[in-house]
């Protein structure tokens, strides 16, 4: 057992590094493009700032089609596109691409839902002051919805962490791959438990941080 862990610890740390890299890049790339997509969804909704039935209809349909696809299938489905964009369909980089894309679609809905809660009167007040749509998006919509957005991104972090666990299927490594290969397949339940414990700690820390920031953003 002890001899096992001498070799397993470095592997666990390496897997943790891979997971954090995948999640971090997906959070930034997917999170930002998802924010843009979510804002666009919200603004083009009938009756809103940039109301456009056609654009909204198309975006809404795409998001609705992509989101229910099980992620493990989505990764293989994206294979040809990943090959074009990343140059390979194997490894961590090749996995980060579909992860970011799925993250973007997931984020767009969360962002849109949180923006719906904004009082339309505040947007109207900004319009009445002569603010342009772009200014309203950046200085009214996002700041007014900041607290729920922070909580939304905290939720998304955990969803991405979850999705990243299947990285092993295309050789991306990470904690999920580590738990399956060195724990499940070798009947070493301790490895599975330790991996789960690491993930639980990460989630706890992120959730605590998210709650704290959201409370701060609420100005209560």
């Amino acid at each position: 057992m002890n001899r096992d862990w001498d070799t397993l610890w470095p592997l666990l740390v390496g897997a943790l590094g891979e997971t954090l890299q995948m999640v971090a890049i997906a959070m930034v790339a997917g999170g930002l493009s998802g924010l843009a997509l979510g804002l666009l969804l919200y603004c083009t909704r009938p009756g809103n700032l940039l109301a456009n039935r056609v654009v909204f209809g198309i975006l809404n349909a795409i998001v609705n089609i992509v989101r229910p696809i099980p992620f493990v299938i989505f990764v293989t489905l994206m294979g040809p596109v990943t090959l074009q964009v990343v140059g390979t369909t194997l490894g961590t980089e090749a996995f980060i691409f579909p992860l970011s894309v799925m993250m973007a679609f997931g984020t767009s809905r969360i962002v849109e839902q949180n923006l719906v809660g904004i009082d339309p009167g505040v947007v109207e007040a900004a319009r009445a002051m002569g603010a342009s749509p772009w200014r309203i998006i950046t200085t009214v919509l996002v700041p007014e919805a900041l607290a729920p957005l922070i909580l939304g991104y905290t939720f998304l972090f955990i969803a991405v962490l979850d999705m990243s666990a299947i990285g092993g299927i295309i050789g991306a490594g990470g904690l999920g791959d580590f738990a399956i290969r060195y724990g499940y397949q070798r009947y070493n339940w301790m490895v599975v438990l330790v991996t789960v414990a690491v993930i639980v700690v990460i989630v706890q820390v992120v959730q605590w941080l998210g709650n704290r920031l959201a409370r701060k953003a609420l100005h209560r």
């Binding site: 009082d119 009167g121 505040v122 109207e124 007040a125 900004a126 319009r127 009445a128 002051m129 002569g130 603010a131 200014r135 200085t139 009214v140 700041p143 007014e144 900041l146 953003a217 100005h219």
Partner: peptide, 29 residues
């Protein structure tokens, strides 16, 4: 619009900004 002020029944203040920030908003615009 910028030359016409407007006030509302529900005030429509920006909750994310202070009183000073709200009053400064049209000036930023």
């Amino acid at each position: 619009r910028a030359r016409i002020g407007m006030i509302f029944q529900q005030f429509n203040l920006l909750t994310s900004r202070t009183v000073a920030g709200n009053v400064a908003y049209p000036l930023r615009v």
